[in-house]
Design a protein around this nucleic acid. Sequence first.
RNA 1: GGCCCCAUGGUCAAGUGGUUAAGACACCGCCCUUUCACGGCGGUAACGGGGGUUCAAGUCCCCCUGGGGUCACCA
Length: 495
Amino acid sequence: MIEQRVRVRFAPSPTGALHIGGARTAYFNWLFARKSGGTFVLRIDDTDTSRSSEASYQQIIDSFRWLGLSWDEGPEIGGEFGPYRQSERLALYREELQRLLAEDKVYPCFCTQEQLLAEREKAQKDGRTPHYSGHCRQLTREQQEYELAAGKTAVYRLRAPKSGSTVVSDMIRGEVVFNNEEIDDFIVWKADGTPTYHFASCVDDYKMGITHIIRADEHLSNTPRHIAMFQALGAPIPQFAHIPMILAPDRSKLSKRHGATSVDEYRMAGILPEALINYLLLLGFSPGEDKELVEVEQAIELFDLRKVTKHAAIYDVKKLAWVNSHYIHSASPDYLLALVWEAWLGRHWTIANPNREQLAWLRSVIVVMQERSHNLQDLQDGVAYYFSAPMQYDVKGVRKHFTAPSTQEHLRRTADILQDAVPFTAHTIERVFRRFIAQQGLKGGELIHPTRLSLSGLTTGPGLFDMMAVLGRVECRQRLLAAADWIGQQVELKV
RNA sequence: GGCCCCAUGGUCAAGUGGUUAAGACACCGCCCUUUCACGGCGGUAACGGGGGUUCAAGUCCCCCUGGGGUCACCA
């Protein structure tokens, strides 16, 4: 037996954003291809022109690039089996349809939608599977010609096997047997002159030499249809692997009401692509050796389709958040700075072409904040006070740290002693601070907390002295005096 | 409704006839500490139910229950 080069594909339809379930399916395909030295094909299933849109096509492409899922053949880059958008392959489908028609493997059907609907409803009522009756299956060539000549519009159906059984050999589930009576003569060609998904997909898999079809569980029931389709086409039957679905926390199908469901939404929520792809790997697969944090390179090594679970997984945003914070913490400051750059620029926190010194300072803001950031948002919204003095002070903080009678005076004194910290580093600042605390007979927190609140307006944040070093002496002094003034005003207002 | 798939803690998930039933997230407690995080230590928590097979069943078989999918001129 000749060992065949692995060729897999992911075929999204551009009717919306790339779903995380789709992203995981794509990733598993990609991993399988990379691991086996095979080819990963990206194909766009846009036969449904009314629902497909250029915008969502673009969004899907962007999501793939963002996730780092590169394709070996597909839109934008081409390949020897192109084109890779089904809307551009119509002539090919038509050709295959003609062939199948000539071989009598497909036949025209003139039943109206009303007839079919009635049939279906009756079957439903009688407790039978709502299948096509086969009304037009018996039509002779002459009868077909007659109807066509009369100008009747036709759809085309596959002459599916009516007896025996079809065995789906699935790499994850083993052998799944379907009774062929369950497969009806499904439509392969619509009245509007375009192929259905089942037809286009199988023709493409055949023509593109796809060896393994790795797709979501929901297609398992469709597989005997596809096998019948491949047989009609005279195509080899690919290997199948149906991976379990991703469910919402209430075990229902994931939908908008469950929050973020698309790759794009996670990107906008400040999730790193490395984190999302890592989390996706953990859904339905266990890398083994108690590994949870697995980067792409290692994932390629560890991935094994046969070890994919059989049951659906519920996605857990908390764990995603944990994975994400790991990647945020271990990322290089420059990388993170690049990621927040646009946002910072938009807020005028930085300029388009900073000099070396300015860049170093921006980096220091990242450095001091990244350890306690869990996502990119934290690095965008949580760093405002480095760029401008706080507009207000945390209410609870004020009650707790600004109410002692001596606070106002302590803050002014602190502003003064900062002159002694030379150079102005976390180390020297702390030394000056500790000395002052000792002189005044204070407890550390009695000075540290009011200072933090004065400088950032917040009660939480990085180590105070690190934060002060980043802010700089002048800024610290101004903010401390401003806070002291503010406290003074509050006292007057009360009186 | 017919057919198909699935079933270990709240969630992800090891486990392939003999284990004190891993680990991670989350949660709780303690420690570290100027705050918040991080980190460290510890804890609560699971084989859906019922029948078999076997010396022995989370692991094999059957039934039930539950969940999911599919049966379109959507993909």
